[in-house]
């Protein structure tokens, strides 16, 4: 695997990650169950391990089960310190949402036997620089766990995971899509749906402070145009200030929905998921004088022409998305 040339943002992220080295990942953790014969038997059956040392009245647990006794299982961990969750959340935010375990180094200091109550402490030992692997780009996080029974050391468990952005998924800007869903299992994450491909759905509108009023209007089937409260100039698309006088004050007027095709293009290539080329995209001049880009529907793409009178329609896509589109005004289609 090769290091990539880090950008300043990556350096900054790595510095933040390195700050977690030496911090506790679990303090005074307690195994979910005492060492017990049923779990040993399940393990041996799964592994096909018929070693007689693991059965009978003097049974010991298979030493390689060490980590199994400290796994959180379905209900997660109890004694996990905040630092580890924070570290994983930082990586999630950076787009490194997938996890794979890469290394496990264990030393067994005394055998574990049914009835033994396991306690453990885990420390974040190291965080690597950014690495690119076949799986994707990410960071190796190494933890070291000391496992005790009755206060006496029973073993150590060093564990390395790669937290990575799957190949083909870019590392993201950190302030996008914050996801801090806290507790994880020892060798995995919970972002099960991240990266799953949506089945050809349209892109969602990007709603922000400046255009939220527009999309709220669309939701109520009203096409709202901004009007400067200082000079009364209409503007579209929505912007924080007036392009004519510079005023930040505004109110809205509802468009009548009447318009004409001011210009258009026909999209042939490249195809995008959820869109079937060829299709026409119009620059519609509304009766109020501002222009809006949208699809021209209910007319063959090669019949769209400049000057075609159109009217607004709110059309639902993908069940949950409403968009303003334009269709030829009655009597005007395919003229």
């Amino acid at each position: 695997m090769d290091d990539e040339f880090p950008t300043r943002d990556e350096d900054e992220l790595h510095t933040r990650l390195k700050a977690y080295e030496g911090r506790a990942a679990t303090v005074a953790g307690v195994g979910r169950d005492p060492v017990n014969a049923p779990m040993i038997r399940h393990w041996c059956e799964a592994m096909g391990d018929r070693n007689p040392a693991y059965t009978g009245p003097d049974a010991i647990a298979p030493p390689t089960m060490l980590q199994a006794w400290i796994m959180g299982g379905l209900s997660g961990h109890g004694g996990r310190a905040r630092a580890y969750g924070e570290l994983l959340a930082l990586l999630d935010e950076a787009g490194c949402t997938s996890v794979v375990a890469t290394d496990c180094e264990q030393e067994y200091l005394r055998p574990l036997r049914p009835g033994d109550e396991v306690t453990f402490d885990t420390v974040i030992e190291s965080v690597s620089g950014r690495k690119t692997t076949k799986l994707g780009t990410g960071y190796f996080v190494t933890t070291r766990t000391d496992i005790r029974v009755g206060g006496a050391s029973a073993g150590t468990h060093r564990f390395r995971i790669l937290k990575y952005a799957p190949a083909g998924h870019d590392l993201k800007d950190r302030d996008q899509d914050r996801n801090q869903d806290g507790d994880r299992n020892q060798d995995g994450d919970r972002n099960q749906d991240r990266g799953r491909q949506e089945a050809a759905r349209r892109p969602r509108p990007v709603v922000n402070r400046d255009n939220a009023g527009f999309w709220e209007g669309v939701r109520r089937h009203r096409l709202l145009v901004q009007r400067c409260t200082a000079c009364a100039t209409l503007r579209f698309p929505w912007l924080p200030g007036c392009g004519t006088c510079g005023s930040a004050g505004w109110d809205t007027v509802e468009a009548s929905g009447e318009g004409t095709v001011y210009s258009y293009v026909v999209m042939h290539h490249p195809p995008f998921p959820a869109f079937s080329p060829p299709y026409a995209i119009g620059l519609i001049e509304l009766a109020e004088g501002v222009r809006i880009v949208s699809n021209v529907v209910d007319v063959p793409y090669d019949k769209v022409r400049i000057g075609l009178p159109v009217e607004l329609e709110f059309r639902a896509y993908d069940d949950d998305s409403v968009l303003p589109v334009f269709r030829p005004r009655a009597g005007e289609a395919a003229a």
Binding site: A46, M47, D49, N51, P62, P63, T102, Q106, E107, Y108
Partner: peptide, 25 residues
Amino acid sequence: NGLVGRYLTDHFGPAAVLRKVAVRL
């Protein structure tokens, strides 16, 4: 990890004691 441990104890017998196991995937 469990399969590697089993491989060793299958070979060396039930008296064998695993001291350290380090694996890289």
